[in-house]
Design a protein around this nucleic acid. Sequence first.
DNA 1: ACCTGAACACCGTTCAAGT
DNA 2: ACCTGAACACCGTTCAAGT
Lengths: 187, 187
Amino acid sequence: VPDTRTALLDAATRLLDGGGVEAVTLREVGRLAGVSHNAPYKHFASKEALLAAVAARLLEERRAEVPDGAPTPAAALRATLVAYTAWALRHPVRFKLVFGRWSIDSPELAAAAHAAHESFVALVVDAQAAGALPPGDPVRLAALLRALTHGAADLALAGHLAADGKGHADPQDLVDDLLHHLGPAGS
Amino acid sequence: VPDTRTALLDAATRLLDGGGVEAVTLREVGRLAGVSHNAPYKHFASKEALLAAVAARLLEERRAEVPDGAPTPAAALRATLVAYTAWALRHPVRFKLVFGRWSIDSPELAAAAHAAHESFVALVVDAQAAGALPPGDPVRLAALLRALTHGAADLALAGHLAADGKGHADPQDLVDDLLHHLGPAGS
DNA sequence: ACCTGAACACCGTTCAAGT
DNA sequence: ACCTGAACACCGTTCAAGT
């Protein structure tokens, strides 16, 4: 039997997936969790704080799903970036919530994001050592890769990538393009 | 004397800039425009439609501010991308509205976005002809540049770029990094 | 054609009270 | 410590009227 706090988070997540962030109201959250419509205030300071807690839990969940056991550092890097775009396309609302709003600063959310960032930079360092990425500040290079991946996913969700019928570029294609351009000898 | 429709758009824009998208309520829009709280329904089908019209007007406004008269195609391309990130950092709420939500599909918004896309691809073609960008499908290359620029701006707004105290990367830096990596001879 | 005022069904948040 | 029910101040949207 989950405690009330967990039940509230579960209910909010279900409503989020079902109807977007606008569907998660404290009244429905309470109803789904089997408590009154303002019981959430005993566990979260506000609706925003509840959403931040949901975001933090989703971010940690996603980190556990990160692909593992790739043959080379370059493959591991590509798999991580592709997983990022695939998750965004599969769960648009979750993606928008987790990587969008930071109006409330939640320590849990910041910690989860920091951990994800750390392991991604380590991945970049490995790929650089293997010669699959150019040398230079790995943090900066990681930012470049992350910005492209995030932007490709966000534009795809907004419908801004497939402008004409012809120029169809998946986020994955753009990730591959960038890795190709960064690849050894600019081949 | 502006007509009511324009007055409503002006009021909505003022509220948007003042307090974010959550501050733009139909009641305040009406009050600021000097009409009743549901007069907007005579000009827009819903609040979302009003926001879409605001977004379309902002996007056209921004297009008029695009830098002009750069010495080379490469400089013109860089100036356009840098202007994109600078606008995003200067007007975060406008950026989120214009490039974020497409729940309602407005013909005006789609037309403005299409025009912006067209001229950007033309810029890429010129830069390719000048040898500042690698050959290949210009639409795809434009998507790559746009995705990185958009992602860098979005991550910067979310506070996801300056992770540690050291790895400080402006969106402009990332734009320059990408252009450098795409540059002739992969120098 | 455009606008108004009242009304409806919501919503987040607060508060006094209960166990 | 945790929860409830009533209440407050909002909100988007609708509708019957007005000019």
